[in-house]
Amino acid sequence: MHDGIHVEKAGLPSATICTDRFIPTARGMAKMWGAADYPTIFTEHPIENLDRWQLRERAEGLATEVVTILTGS
C-alpha cells in the first residue's frame, strides 16, 4: 500500500493488490497518507501457499481490474 500510494503520488499510475484479510490495514494506511480513496484490489486470502501456476491463474483473474485502475477506464 505504502509503495503503491507513493508511486501514484510521484505521477506513475499504480495498482495495488492486497489479500482480503488485510482490508482494515490497507484502508488505514491509505487514510494515513491522505489517500483514503486510493483504489485497491482485494483478493482472497491467502496467496502465500499458491504455487507459481496457481498464482498466475489468480493474477489473470485480476488483470482486467488492474488495467482499469491503471488506465482510468
Binding site: F22, P24, T25, G28, M29, M32
Partner: peptide, 10 residues
C-alpha cells in the same frame, strides 16, 4: 508508533 494489534500490528 501506531503498532496497534489487529490494525497495523498483524
Amino acid at each position: 508508533c501506531a503498532a496497534i494489534p489487529g490494525l497495523y500490528d498483524r
